[in-house]
Design a protein around this nucleic acid. Structure first.
Length: 150
DNA sequence: GCCAACGTTGGC
DNA sequence: GCCAACGTTGGC
């Protein structure tokens, strides 16, 4: 089983939205690296941190799990969607996503706190200039955060 | 709102 | 295949 960190802007979709929906399709990823993580490495049962980005208090706010393996993102075919991709076809979809299931809300572990711990210094999400919305989390990092910071 | 960093596009 | 221009991300 692998561990992940997945970003969402809370104005668009927050941990409270997931707590209400319980399961949601993680649509709208339009970055090849992030897509490849979902397509090639994510398996049902993998666990992920829910991270609020581009907001007043960026950081980890909850835990979720992969509920369904990657399948084509319907929004790529929808001309009215912001995520419409004219290059994608039903026969040859370009974008896929997993479904995620709510596990729990957690106390906020802020970006500043993540940066404050040397044990977490190598986290991909903390790398300079990182913009990837989905990044792997090492088991040791997951254990440190869940056991020491929550 | 600013802007550094990054990914993508497209002309050549 | 190069790379300048452009658009997006996301912390601050």
């Amino acid at each position: 089983m692998r561990y992940w960190l997945m970003k969402s802007e809370p104005d668009a979709y927050s941990i409270d939205d997931l707590a209400r929906d319980r399961v949601t399709p993680w649509t709208g990823v339009r970055n090849y690296q992030a897509r490849n993580f979902m397509r090639d490495q994510m398996r049902v049962g993998d666990q992920a941190f829910f991270y609020h980005s581009n907001c007043a208090e960026p950081g980890i706010v909850g835990i979720m799990e992969v509920a369904r393996a990657a399948y084509p993102d319907e929004t790529q075919f929808d001309k009215s969607s912001d995520y419409y991709d004219p290059a994608a076809t039903r026969d040859n979809p370009r974008w896929v996503h997993v479904d995620v299931r709510f596990v729990k809300k957690t106390p906020l572990v802020s970006l500043a706190e993540l940066r404050a711990h040397p044990e977490l210094a190598r986290m991909r999400v903390l790398a300079k200039g990182n913009r990837l919305s989905i990044t792997p989390v090492d088991p040791a990092e997951w254990k440190f955060i869940t056991e020491r910071l929550m």
